[in-house]
Design a protein around this nucleic acid. Structure first.
Lengths: 120, 120
DNA sequence: CGCTATACTCTCTTAGAGAATATATTCTCG
DNA sequence: CGAGAATATATTCTCTAAGAGAGTATAGCG
């Protein structure tokens, strides 16, 4: 039992959901941290607003793709208000499937001449 | 004047919009053809419904990313009901920018260990 | 006191899902 | 051959889901 659902049943993920899961794939993080990290990584191009972020998190939580992490950083580096999340096993597989799907999209873009060829 | 807008102002594109533009990047196509082609390329994983497709087309059209093409296939291969579209120059640049953005996402996914490394 | 960090909620608008409408052509079967 | 089914094609409508943006709340820090 437990999880017999096919990761592909969850695809395609929205861009926001994928960004959140990508951040969590590096390890547990808290909501505000995800917000900052996505903005940093995308050079400010993708900006998660609180309404967008927290609702995305709660949807992913309900879908069983992420869960709250109990382990917390050492107290001197922590802030007790934070709520940490991490990907579930299913979540990681879904994120991987979505990454493969997007890889194919990018390859089509390359084939269509929208990108530089892989190696000149 | 004409087009002085930065392609990045249009990002991020939704997945549907990107799929449509990716199809048109191969050359002009008509609505129904795009629908079939996206479904084929994605092995049925992404299914464009009429309501989704035609509204996406009309949004992209209003935004100046695609335009109607006058050239049509030879009459014996044509169907006069069809309406052909093709990317504008701006549209092609926007699609390319989106493709680069998505390339970066996929690279993050790889760095996070969600995908097989580039070359074993 | 005002700023930053943090979480959460509310409303408004946009986008996608899915079904329905319309019509011409082509295919199939009695 | 002719009727009816299926296909090709475009468009519209309503319902739901998702993102935008602003606002609320609170604690700590300089």
């Amino acid at each position: 039992m437990s999880q017999k659902r096919d990761p592909r049943d969850f695809l395609p993920l929205t861009d926001v959901a994928f960004q959140v899961m990508l951040t969590l794939a590096d390890g547990p993080a808290h909501g505000y941290g995800v917000m900052i990290e996505v903005e940093r990584r995308t050079d400010g191009a993708v900006k998660l607003r609180p309404g967008t972020l927290y609702r995305a998190i709660s949807r992913l939580h309900e879908a069983g793709l992420l869960e709250e992490a109990e382990e917390r950083p050492a107290p001197e580096a922590d802030d007790e208000r934070r709520r940490y999340y991490r990907l579930t096993d299913l979540g990681r597989r879904v994120a991987a499937a979505e990454a493969r799907r997007r890889t194919r999209e990018v390859e089509w873009a390359r084939d269509a001449g929208l990108l530089q060829p892989k190696r000149a």
